[in-house]
Simulated assay, not measured.
Amino acid sequence: MTSDGADPYDPRGNRILAALPKNARDHLRPRLEPFDLKPGTILYRPGERIEAVYFPVIGVCSIVTDLEGPTVEVATVGDEGMVGLPVFLGVATAAERSLCQVEGRALRMDADQFRHEIAVLDGPLQHVMQRFTQSMFTQLARNAGCIRGHRTHERCARWLLMTADRMHSDRFDLTQKFLAQMLAVRRSSVSEVAGALAADGCIHYSRGTITILDRDRLLTHACTCYRVIREALDATLPPHGQAP
């Protein structure tokens, strides 16, 4: 429990679990175990069996593709989703790698148990997971187009806003390595872009910590993908505070 008595691992902190009927969520609760998300922790690797799925409550996890040279991020997952989507889609292994990028907390479920619960709760859990899958398709599509069609500082502003949404805070730790992966650029380019946003009064960036100083101003720099992805998510899974 936190100092105010709140449960830091309350399933309602994850939008998939929050969208379930209360009886379904209560059924799942004993099958979910608290899991601390630490930066760099590998959640699954290419070609290896996915042993567990994760429902972040706070924090950011990445799905990355390891190319012959660089590592490129293809999607991120926070409190709106689940890490381990291939399990829901009936695949035991993944072609990508998933790891934690921004520290947080999650609820972990054994992959076989999750498969069982999908069958047992045929209806509510499957329907919510289908809606999340659709929102992930939107994110993947926008990410692919965003890399080619939008400027680096626009994409950077978008990623910072998405991270702030998932952390429920305008201050969070974010390394240059992570930003470079998110933006598919060199670290030197990250320094230039972050410096430009800082000079404009949008953010403060020091020793791996980002502070958003003016969210409205940062929004003016962000590409349209931020709005599209957020609206797609809100349309498929209810925002926090609307759990049954």
Rank of each mutant, 00 (worst) to 15 (best):
G104T: 01
A144W: 06
T133F: 07
L160E: 13
M129Q: 05
Q126D: 13
E73G: 07
F137L: 14
A92W: 09
M129G: 04
A164I: 00
L140H: 10
G90D: 14
R97C: 05
T163F: 15
D165G: 09
R148F: 13
Q130F: 12
V77K: 02
L107C: 05
A106M: 00
V128E: 08
R108P: 02
F172C: 01
A144F: 13
L125F: 14
E117I: 05
G149A: 11
P124N: 01
V83W: 06
A119Y: 11
F114V: 01
S98M: 09
A95G: 07
D170A: 06
V74H: 00
F88G: 05
R97P: 02
V77H: 08
E80G: 03
W159L: 05
D79K: 00
G104V: 00
P124F: 01
P124D: 04
S135E: 00
T163D: 07
Q130E: 15
M162P: 00
L125Q: 12
V91N: 14
R131G: 07
E73L: 14
G123R: 00
S169Q: 13
T133W: 09
F114L: 06
A111R: 03
R158E: 10
N143S: 09
F132Q: 11
G81H: 06
E96Q: 15
L99A: 08
D112A: 07
M82A: 04
H168S: 00
D170V: 02
I147L: 11
P86N: 05
D110F: 04
E154M: 07
V87G: 05
G78E: 02
A164H: 00
R97A: 10
M162F: 04
M162V: 07
F132V: 11
H168W: 03
A144L: 15
I118Q: 02
R171M: 15
T163H: 13
T76Q: 15
F132C: 05
A144Q: 11
C146V: 04
A111Y: 03
A106I: 02
G90M: 09
L125P: 14
E103R: 10
A94M: 02
L140W: 14
